[in-house]
Amino acid sequence: MIRRIIDFIIILLFVWVCMILGLWIIDRVIVPMNLAGVTNNLLSAIFKVGISAFLVLIWLWIWREIVKRSFWHAIKKQQDY
């Protein structure tokens, strides 16, 4: 029972830390970025939103992969026993 809880704690903590880190990167790195060759403010904003959205998609993908691999690893381990 404890091992199952630890599995979920690890996944949830990892996902939460990634979310906080992602928000920090958006705030400190992406928003203050000066895009070389882009002088139009609207274009610059669209570009930054696009990068942020891409980061979110990567976050969701990492989350999905961790769960998928963890699930099939647990199933395989159970079969081996």
Partner: peptide, 22 residues
């Protein structure tokens, strides 16, 4: 539910408790 049970079978009461812990 499937993820909770991946490590082995549980009674429904135990699985429900694990949900609440998560």
């Amino acid at each position: 539910a499937r993820m909770i049970l991946a490590r082995g079978p549980l009674y429904e009461r135990e699985a429900a408790l694990l949900f609440l812990v998560v």
